[in-house]
Amino acid sequence: MLRILSTLATIALALPLLQAAHAGEVPKPSAAIESPGTQCVAPPAEIRRNHMEMLKHQRDLTLREGIRGTKVSLNGCIACHASKKTGSVIGNNDNFCQGCHAYAAVKLDCWDCHQPKAGYQATGATP
């Protein structure tokens, strides 16, 4: 009797936990593109899969060889994809870069150095 009771109690306790685990599943990122351009530099499927390689390739070309003005550009990404509310691609999970990267659990390294806000003007106070 006692064993049955304890088993039932265990199940009763475990149920909400299971439910919580299910509810705690990370929802798909839902970053809305608020100021869409007419056309991204590549089809979405390719961008999703290869944006890191495209950016990495371009960063080396721009920095090390001085090639500018090509179709792939991080500032170009920000110009279209920054949130209207925050003006940024990071800051919270509704924003374009951070939302997806939080979902995929991939650390973002760009924004330690690059400015994540669209059209940002440095204030220019003297140090």
């Binding site: 500032n75 330690d112 150095c113 690059h114 400015q115 806000k117 059209g119 940002y120 003007q121």
Partner: peptide
């Protein structure tokens, strides 16, 4: 950590 970079001049 920096946040006020000029978009043309990344530094961090």
């Amino acid at each position: 950590p920096l946040t006020e970079q000029n978009p043309q001049v990344p530094r961090g």
